[in-house]
Design a binder for these strands. Sequence first.
DNA 1: CGGCAATTTGAAGGCAGTCAATTAAAGTGG
DNA 2: CCACTTTAATTGACTGCCTTCAAATTGCCG
Lengths: 239, 239
Amino acid sequence: MTIRPDFGTSAVIAPDLSGIVQAIHASARCAGSFADEETIRRALSALQRGPIHFHRDKVIACEGEAADYIFVVVSGVVRSCKTYQNGSRGVVAFYLPGDLFGWDDAKCSLSIEAATDVMVLFLKRRALLSLAARDSRIGSYLLAQTTKELGRTQQHSLLMGQCAKSRVATFLTDLWTRLGKPASVDLPMLHQDIADYLGLTIETLSRTITSFEQSGMLKRQSYRKLVLRKPALLSQLID
Amino acid sequence: MTIRPDFGTSAVIAPDLSGIVQAIHASARCAGSFADEETIRRALSALQRGPIHFHRDKVIACEGEAADYIFVVVSGVVRSCKTYQNGSRGVVAFYLPGDLFGWDDAKCSLSIEAATDVMVLFLKRRALLSLAARDSRIGSYLLAQTTKELGRTQQHSLLMGQCAKSRVATFLTDLWTRLGKPASVDLPMLHQDIADYLGLTIETLSRTITSFEQSGMLKRQSYRKLVLRKPALLSQLID
DNA sequence: CGGCAATTTGAAGGCAGTCAATTAAAGTGG
DNA sequence: CCACTTTAATTGACTGCCTTCAAATTGCCG
């Protein structure tokens, strides 16, 4: 069992629920909640299932399936995507360690799949919702999380209207930023996943990265390892 | 003051808050709520402002502006969009009468603008959130509404990865369906808005509609009035 | 009827896609 | 540890869809 390289130090952010519990506790700004941090932890643990391990490309939740669970990524990368009859595919989002997702109703017809080998935690949806009804801190947290994801998705739909260079530059700088601006960026997912996420072919993705390298903006250390030499120049391509 | 043609009968769905109040009441499935329907109505009315009228292309809320309000469309169509330095524009979503929106945090940098002459109701964001903390029915409603919008936005980002014919066919059939499948479809917004929403130019949009007309799938009655003759064929173009 | 705005149509060019071949990297077994 | 196989990524040549720029047409409103 080989765990693929993942998002550096952030990979171990959420080995359990403690990150979420603290986030809920921190986001509580409203009166009326009647549970302390320990209570939240115990309540969440009670409706937790897993974490469960999935190999790359395994389907975690099928499209159209009854959406009984909310997911938390413990390690690795998860993709939310749709495969069409002609074999092409669109990737809506990637989820990294610590991300809570799976709010889309069942009708949304998106498939949740492992983009790398991953560990995923399951939370019973109905139980979580009824918990949110009793403790407004959890409700606020869920709303804030969903709003954040809505914002990201809006940005992504805007990105899809741009040219290839802008899309790739945005993806690389976003990823680099999320990783804490390390010296070198390890792409945790396949180029095919990135291309489907950006609405491009792997050939165009590859050629675009090559053009960035020829401009001196970045350097390839290997297929999946890049060094961003001039991030400022890359950012100028965005918009 | 000329009110432009809008979404037929649905234009008068929400002249006030009654639609939302009922939706909140209906979506209540959790214990712990301590307000009846009349209480909700009064609470919402208290933090309501407007409705206010905006002419087409007027900015309702500027990008980056402190997001103090949540919006409800009373009549007309609102667009959520971003204008780039080079003058191009991307439209993330259209909001129709009855839609509640404006959840995106301030940082999201989207501009809320009138796509037609519109009437918009304002709700104080903080007051609504604290109300949601006290009454879980309102919290659930807000979460459900945000989730619904997230799903729509995901579908839209997928759409942007498709070819022009699929995008236009999807837009037309979706609109036709939302309008209750009437005999003829009145496009309430300009072609430029639709093109920016679909990530196309107005020329490509026009040419695509022309090709649909030549295939006998639809017929133009005027620039903004279409008759979908073979909706099934149009749907086949969607993937 | 006249003038402006919106849409349609036409012709030419560019960016990204497709198909095919090569190279690099990772996994496998001797 | 190295040869072999398989998978992933790069590169090249060509095609096609969509854009761009320009002109004509339609529709709206005074």
